[in-house]
Design a protein around this nucleic acid. Sequence first.
DNA 1: GTTCGTCTACCAACTGGTAGGTAGCTTGTC
DNA 2: GACAAGCTACCTACCAGTTGGTAGACGAAC
Lengths: 192, 192
Amino acid sequence: MSSSSTTADDILRCARSLIIKGGYNSFSYADISDVVGIRKASIHHHFPAKSDLVRAVVAQYRQEAAAALTALESHIPDPHEQLRAYVGYWETCISDASHPFCVCALLAGEIPVLPEDVVVEVRAHFRQLSDWLTAAFERGAAEGSVKLTGTARETAETFMATVHGAMLSARAYGNAAAFGAVTAPLLNRMTA
Amino acid sequence: MSSSSTTADDILRCARSLIIKGGYNSFSYADISDVVGIRKASIHHHFPAKSDLVRAVVAQYRQEAAAALTALESHIPDPHEQLRAYVGYWETCISDASHPFCVCALLAGEIPVLPEDVVVEVRAHFRQLSDWLTAAFERGAAEGSVKLTGTARETAETFMATVHGAMLSARAYGNAAAFGAVTAPLLNRMTA
DNA sequence: GTTCGTCTACCAACTGGTAGGTAGCTTGTC
DNA sequence: GACAAGCTACCTACCAGTTGGTAGACGAAC
């Protein structure tokens, strides 16, 4: 259970990037089999059903996101700069095409056709991110470095939605710069 | 070509609502066959390949959207109220669950796995909507009823992204009210 | 008498998933 | 130190059901 089993990690990594490409129904165990260099049946050994695999991908993603947001909080004291760093992270991911979409934002669009346990994880990610953003806006407003529109929660929800919509626009236009074009006014407006 | 062929329309309508549910790869000709009450092979008579069908769905959707936006423009003179009406339209669609997602916003997320001709249509919708919003913001700013953040184009792109992200949030939370919670601050902030 | 819409009957490829076997490692016991 | 037992990770071989798509026949309508 410690570390040796890199195969399960390889499968998770591969599944993640396939999900980012086109969601739950856009990939199969055969696709993973090709990339990881393992037989289809062996994937079922690690993740009995497809829903198990995708749930594991989202759970791992959420854990990493939580850790990254906590790290960001401890490295950057100013809430305004934290929000900028969050957006900057995605700007980098999109422009180098390494990880050009939030796993949960993509899966959220497919929720009506997703297995229930995956839906639960996706929903939890939205709550988690909204909570973090709300806290940042609250501190920022208290310190006077950030301007709210409505409550901190409302401002955070609007902020999150805009970032997700910006990912969609970048894909639609086939142009990574579209992400920055959307988020730059968002960040500017944030300043009191 | 005139009107008699309602079957093709039935197929288009059905395909549209299936796409709204979960995107390109979440439905099959068999699903449509069940709903429309026609054999799979007969669907192929109207739309030889799946990409033809989906391209037609998006093309029809774009045409309807263009007509609706034009109508909205002629009925509501004030640009600020036009933008409010646009958001209100989606708020209604989402709360009565009749049509709870923009076809093109959903497909945009899946672009890397979509047939090229569908991608072209989706991209065209984003341009079309962005143009309409930009024009509204330009007029609104000129008349003083709307406040810009950056250029009219930038403001429009941010506005569009926020509305799309709000659809995603409503799905993720499983709560139609989440759409309004995101868009209310968006509309309030718009006021000079 | 040809065009149109639908049908039945196929198809190969792929889907997620299962059954059963095997090689290698670890563990407990004599 | 030998050896059986159990476990893990992988394999081949298979499954039924579904996928998008085709061929060709039929009746109705213009």
